[in-house]
């Protein structure tokens, strides 16, 4: 594509399910070769957006194009240039990994020979060669995800939609999958990725859109969002309950904001701007104040922190509020 039209172009898209507004006037653009992270809690509308863009459902209003094709009308064209790895791994449990990939390749109308070659390449790329001839039933969660991602790449899509690709994976499988996704982007694929984890969006995406209750509420790079949430957090766990107030007093000196206290585990958390530079000072001052510390940690802000900063609610509260009376929505 050499045109100036963005590869993914969403204009005022809304989607209603009865009274539920799953998407409300969403507009966004993704340039060719870029990777957009769509960050939001459960029920925010991420899957709905992915389904609209991959032509599986139609928007109630607004319109969207992918590589110039109207997702509501030119479904055949859209499907031939996109890859979709949905939220639940869409693999056929009774087929082997290899058969799964051959099946998908055949349904993209590749020849038998081509299909077999491509399946072999992908098994190799996704580190599934040894298990390639076992039925997918026997695969672990991480292997299924990899197979699902491999299936979405069979036809070398220009545009890839990844709906919570690492939800439910252990940290190692998650890191492996991240590496694969990074490789893809290097090769020029345009990616829209949804996630509930700020660090995942941070690791993979150029830009992040935050979605809440069907609306985009913030947009920017990971560091921009983090700045809005307070860039880092330092948490100290006091050894004794009676030392909590002394600890709070010390921590207050390092932040413009009031430290937060959780009584049951005696943990005091404060948001700071440059944690690693302050760490040594905090340790020194706690020491001279006579506080015994059992744990001291620094962490990056999470979706929760960003959410709290943007909406005044935590992501969990939002998910619970929207979660009534609907299960298995995705």
């Amino acid at each position: 594509m050499t045109t100036s039209v963005p590869t993914i172009d969403v204009r005022n898209v809304s989607k209603r399910y009865g009274k539920i507004e799953a998407l409300n006037d969403v507009s966004l653009q993704v340039e060719q070769g870029a990777i957009l992270g769509m960050l939001g809690p459960n029920g925010a509308g991420k899957t709905t957006l992915v389904k609209i863009l991959s032509s599986l459902i139609k928007p109630s209003s607004g319109y969207a194009t992918v590589a110039g094709y109207d997702v509501a009308k030119q479904t055949r064209q859209v499907r031939s240039i996109i890859g979709l790895a949905g939220q639940s791994a869409a693999v056929d449990e009774n087929l082997t990994g290899r058969e799964n990939l051959v099946l998908v390749a055949r349904l993209y109308h590749m020849s038998r020979g081509e299909s077999r070659t491509r399946a072999g390449e992908l098994l190799e790329q996704f580190n599934l060669v040894e298990s390639g001839d076992r039925t997918a039933k026997t695969y672990s969660g991480g292997m299924r995800r990899r197979l699902d991602l491999a299936a979405s790449l069979v036809a070398r899509p220009q545009v890839l939609f990844l709906d919570e690709p690492t939800t439910g994976l252990d940290p190692r499988s998650r890191n492996d999958l991240w590496d694969v996704i990074r490789e893809l982007v290097k090769a020029g694929t345009t990616v829209l990725l949804t996630t509930q984890y700020l660090d995942e969006a941070d690791q993979l995406a150029d830009r992040i859109s935050v979605i809440d209750r069907g609306s985009l509420i913030a947009e920017g790079t990971a560091s921009e969002l983090k700045q809005r949430a307070g860039s880092e957090f330092i948490a100290v766990q006091a050894q004794e309950h009676d030392q909590i107030s002394k600890t709070v007093e010390v921590m207050r000196r390092f932040s413009t904001e009031e430290p937060a206290v959780t009584e049951h585990d005696r943990r005091i958390t404060v948001s700071v701007t440059d944690g690693s530079a302050l760490l040594a000072g905090i340790v020194r001052e706690l020491d001279s104040a006579g506080v015994a510390v059992t744990d001291l940690s620094m962490r990056q802000p999470t979706l929760d922190d960003v959410f709290l900063a943007l909406t005044g609610r935590t992501a969990e509260e939002t998910a619970e509020g929207d979660g009534e009376g609907e299960d298995g929505g995705d």
């Binding site: 032509s55 499907r79 996109i82 869409a90 998908v104 349904l107």
Partner: peptide, 13 residues
Amino acid sequence: SKGIVDRYRSLPM
């Protein structure tokens, strides 16, 4: 009842 139909649906078949 399984995820596999989502795969079929996203294909140009």
